[in-house]
Design a protein around this nucleic acid. Structure first.
Lengths: 345, 345
DNA sequence: ATTATGTAGTTAAGCGTTTTCCTATTTCCT
DNA sequence: AGGAAATAGGAAAACGCTTAACTACATAAT
C-alpha cells in the first residue's frame, strides 16, 4: 500500500507538501497541487487513519455504545431506526461508526475491569460517542464524560451525566394517549410496561399514565400494570395476565408497539373483538403498526430523527467541546387508528 | 491519558519491558511484571490502538461492509439477524465492528462511488472485513482482496472474487419448496422475485424454481414472474399483478417473507381465502412468519448462523491468511405451515 | 576454568502522518 | 531600487507503540 513517501517521490515534492495538499492548507501552487493529486490518483493513495490518529488528529470514527444484549438490540425495529438515523448523519459527515455492543472485557489487560466499549473509546480511536442510555444510573455515559470524550446520549441520562441527551417527550406522549383513552370513556386501562425500572423512558410513560388518571380522579391500580420485555411474545403473555383479571380492563396501553401487537393477538385468540371488546394502543409507531388488522393506535416518536439529531449534536460537540447542551426533547404525536374505540356498556 | 512512558517511569523499567509485560512476552521476572502491572493499574493505562495499528499490529477491528442503501438495510429483519450473528462472533473474539454502509454523500460523487468503505478499510484500520455480497459482480470484495485484506463474504461472490464466501443453499431450498407446491398439485406458480439481477441469491432461487418445474415438464411463464424490492409493500403490488392475470396462478412463491406477507394481504383484500383459493410461500422464515394468519410456509435459512459463520471464518483467515476456503453452503429447511394447500378444482 | 545457554532488561529503529518552524523566492509598496 | 510581506516548499520533531538487536549477568555444560 502506497504511503505518503511514495506520493512525495512520484510528485517530486516533500511529504510535507503532500500532506498540505491533502489537508487543503494554503500556500501550495496550483501546478504542485496538481502534480500531487496526480500522484495520489496514480498510486491510489489513502492516508493511514492510524497514523493520522497518532498525530493527535481526528480518527473520523465515532463510537456507538449500545449496552444492551445484542439479541435484543438487533431485533428491535425502533432501535434499528434510531441507529439508522445515527448512521445517516455519521456517514454524511464522512465519519465512520464503530459498533460497540455489550460484551466482556478485553483479555489484553484483565487488570482493568472495563467493559469493551469503554476501553475502546478511551483507547483513542473515536472522536466521540453516542450512547444509548437506557439503564437508570448509566455508567457508560459518565465514564466517557470523565474520559473527556464528546458524548451524546439517546434516551435519558441517569443521575450522573445530565447533559447532552436527546429523547422523546415520553411523559407528554403517554399523557396524551391515556387522556384520549379516558375521553373515549375507558376507566380501567391496563398497562404493559417494559422491564421494571429498566429504562427511564418507561418511568416517564408511567408518570404520564398516572397523571392522566389523576385528572379523572382515578388511582392507578397496581394490578393493571403488567411487565414485558418489549417483545411481541411478552406482550402476548402480559395481556393474558391483564385479561384474566376479574375486573378486566377495557383498554390496554402497551409501551411499545411490538408488545401491543402481541397483546392484540392474545385478545383475538381469547375471542375478543378489537376495538369493540378491547382497545389496544402502543408506543413508537413502527411500520408494522399500520399493516396489522386493525391498525394500531399509537404514539409516534421519530426514531430516525432522534438518532440523527444525536449524531448531529455530537459533531457540534466534537468541533466545539464547550458547546454542550442540556437535553433536546423531541415531540411525540398521537396517531389514532382502528385499534381503539369507546368501551361497550 | 497515560502513555507507555508514564507506566515505564512509574514502574522504573523501560517502555520495552512494559510492552513485553502487556503482550505476555517471556523473559520478564515475576517481580518486574508485578511492578509494571501495578503501575498500569495505578495510571489506568490503556495502550493506544492507533499506535498499535501503526506498528503493523492488530487493530482489533473488523469492517462490516454493507453496500446497501441504509434505509433498506436497517429495516430488513433477516439482514439484521445476519449482522447479529456477525456481531456475536466478533464481540466474543474481543474484536470490534466498524460499520460501513453505502454513504449517500459519496454515492453522489460519481468518481469514488464505492470508496466510502473501501477507503476506510484500505486505510489500515481494519484487520479484516465482512462484506455482504449482493450485487452481481461485486467490486467491494474484489477490491478488498487486492488490498490484501482478509475478507469473507456473506452471500454469493461475483465472478471476480470466488473464494471465501458463505451463503445458504438457495437453489436447493427453492427447489424443495417449489417441488412441494407441485406435489400439492399446483401447476401455475407465480413468483415474486427481488429486483432483477440484483442478487445472485435470487438467480439461484429462480434456477431452483425452473428446475422444479422442468421436472414436471413445465416451462416457466415469464408472465408469472413479478419483481419486488423485498418490502412488504412491493409484495402487495406484485401480487396484484400476478392475480390480475387471466390465468391466475394458484400459488405464489415470494422470495422473501416480507413480500409474501404483502402478497397475502393483497390476496385477502381481493377476497381470496388463503390457502384455499391461493397458496402463498416465502423464504427466510423471519419471526413474523409464525405470527401472521395463516402462518406462512417458507424456506428457513439461519441468518444468525450465516453471519456467525462468516465472522468465525474471517478470524481463521486473519490468523492464517493462507487458510482460504472456497465457499460454505448452509442448508435450508422447508417449513410447512398453514399458508399452503392443494389447489381447488 | 572456559564456553555455551538461558534469562532479564535496555536501546533504538521504525510505523505514516501532521505540524511547527525554517528558508527561499516572488510580489508589492514606497 | 530596497525592503516588507506574501507565497511556496522543505526539514525535522512528535505522536505511542512494537520488536529486533544488543548487553549483562547468572547458571549449566564441557
Amino acid at each position: 500500500m502506497a504511503n505518503i513517501y511514495d506520493v512525495a517521490k512520484q510528485a517530486n515534492v516533500s511529504i510535507a507538501t503532500v500532506s498540505k495538499v491533502l489537508s487543503n492548507t494554503p500556500y501550495v501552487s496550483v501546478p504542485t497541487r496538481e502534480r500531487v493529486l496526480q500522484a495520489v490518483r496514480a498510486l491510489d493513495y489513502t492516508p493511514s487513519l492510524a497514523a493520522r490518529a497518532l498525530t493527535g488528529n481526528r480518527t473520523y470514527i465515532v463510537g456507538l455504545v449500545i449496552p444492551y444484549d445484542p439479541t435484543y438490540l438487533f431485533s428491535d425495529p425502533f432501535l434499528m431506526e434510531e441507529i439508522r438515523g445515527v448512521d445517516d448523519a455519521v456517514t454524511s459527515h464522512d465519519y465512520n461508526l464503530l459498533l460497540s455492543t455489550a460484551s466482556r472485557s478485553l483479555a489484553v489487560n484483565q487488570t482493568n475491569q472495563q467493559s469493551a466499549y469503554a476501553r475502546l473509546l478511551r483507547t483513542g480511536y473515536a472522536d466521540g460517542a453516542i450512547t444509548f442510555e437506557t439503564f437508570e444510573g448509566d455508567a457508560p455515559a459518565h465514564q466517557l464524560e470523565t474520559a473527556g470524550l464528546p458524548r451524546v446520549s439517546v434516551g435519558y441520562a441517569g443521575q450522573q451525566a445530565v447533559a447532552n441527551v436527546v429523547h422523546s417527550d415520553d411523559y407528554a406522549g403517554s399523557l396524551e394517549l391515556v387522556r384520549y383513552l379516558l375521553q373515549l370513556g375507558h376507566r380501567r386501562i391496563g398497562v404493559i410496561s417494559g422491564p421494571a425500572n429498566f429504562m427511564q423512558a418507561m418511568n416517564e410513560r408511567l408518570r404520564g399514565y398516572q397523571h392522566a388518571l389523576a385528572a379523572y380522579q382515578l388511582e392507578s391500580d397496581p394490578q393493571l400494570v403488567a411487565y414485558g420485555d418489549f417483545t411481541s411474545e411478552s406482550g402476548y403473555v402480559a395481556a393474558g395476565q391483564l385479561l384474566a383479571l376479574q375486573y378486566r380492563p377495557t383498554a390496554i396501553f402497551a409501551m411499545n408497539d411490538r408488545m401491543a401487537i402481541g397483546a392484540m393477538r392474545r385478545a383475538q385468540e381469547m375471542g375478543l373483538q378489537i376495538p369493540t371488546d378491547l382497545s389496544v394502543a402502543g408506543f413508537d409507531d413502527v411500520p408494522l403498526s399500520v399493516a396489522i388488522d386493525p391498525p394500531l393506535t399509537t404514539v409516534r416518536q421519530n426514531a430516525f430523527v432522534m438518532g440523527h439529531t444525536a449524531a448531529t449534536l455530537l459533531f457540534n460537540l466534537i468541533e466545539n467541546p464547550t458547546k454542550t447542551f442540556d437535553s433536546v426533547v423531541l415531540p411525540t404525536e398521537l396517531i389514532i387508528r382502528g385499534s381503539t374505540a369507546p368501551p361497550v356498556g
